[in-house]
């Protein structure tokens, strides 16, 4: 993996002439987790998809720049709320999907290490339908790690999981994605407070940066300062909505 760059996205987006988000500037610190927190429909997923180079249905005027000056879209790994596992492929095949799609040889040693790290060794030859929601999301995380990209874009990847599995996945992802430039888009203030090394709240009015708790991420779910931050974030979200 090449060193993770700083990332800056600045600009404005419109859909059929209506403003989706007003001019904004978002900085993603190199090798850091940035949590973009916001309600539905404020355009936070659009920001993520713009960085990933995916269709958004919106007209974006602005720029997306990496601090090392290289292209961004071909250096990202992407993980969504839906695990996007191919139902006809085994767990192992799903994890190495990227190499297969690019026609490259699969690094089997690396894949085996990731499978062990995600505690999936008993499920390698299973199809996704045989797994639980948490297991499926671990496969998706292994697939993301297999790509070994310096920039990782997470679009509410844990929001469909139950509370316990979600907390487990947050710990696992925080540890596994260390050192990469991560953008986590979420609507959960608790998740942002636990994981964000930088937290930005997105509302109709624009972006509001927010002081993250002092403890290193992933923070304990009952860490007092984390809980206070969670409350403060929720208040910001509610104020922004009115």
């Amino acid at each position: 993996m090449t060193p993770a760059p700083d990332l800056t996205i600045s600009g404005t987006a419109t859909i059929d002439g209506a403003t989706l988000f007003a001019p904004l500037t978002l900085n993603l610190g190199a090798g850091q987790w940035t949590c973009l927190l916001g309600g539905s429909g404020v355009g936070k997923t659009t920001v993520l998809r713009l960085i990933a180079g995916l269709d958004t249905g919106a007209d974006f005027t602005g720029q997306i720049i990496a601090s090392d000056g290289q292209a961004v879209a071909d250096r990202v790994a992407y993980m969504a709320q839906d695990d996007l596992l191919l139902p006809w492929a085994t767990v192992a095949q799903n994890i190495s999907l990227g190499a297969r799609l690019r026609g490259e040889t699969v690094d089997l040693d690396r894949r085996t290490r990731l499978i062990e790290r995600m505690r999936l060794q008993d499920h390698m030859t299973k199809k996704p339908a045989e797994l639980s929601g948490g297991q499926r999301q671990r496969v998706a995380l292994a697939r993301t790690l297999m790509e070994d990209r310096p920039i990782v874009l997470l679009d509410e990847p844990f929001s469909a999981l139950d509370a316990r599995t979600r907390a487990d996945m947050q710990d696992l992802a925080a540890e596994a994605l260390q050192g990469r430039t991560v953008l986590l888009v979420t609507h959960d203030p608790g998740e942002a407070a636990r994981l964000g090394q930088s937290i930005v709240v997105m509302t109709q009015q624009g972006l509001t940066p927010c002081e993250p708790p002092h403890a290193p991420a992933p923070r304990h779910v009952d860490d007092l300062e984390t809980l206070e931050t969670q409350g403060a974030l929720l208040r910001l979200l509610r104020e922004g909505a009115t």
């Binding site: 990933a52 995916l54 969504a80 996007l84 799609l101 690019r102």
Partner: peptide, 29 residues
Amino acid sequence: TPAGYLDLARTMQASKRSILWHIRIPAAL
């Protein structure tokens, strides 16, 4: 083809041909 699969494949720099072969055809079987 579910749009999410195509998004994922695009972030993996898959060619059109490879997307057809590895994702769209199996999804259409």
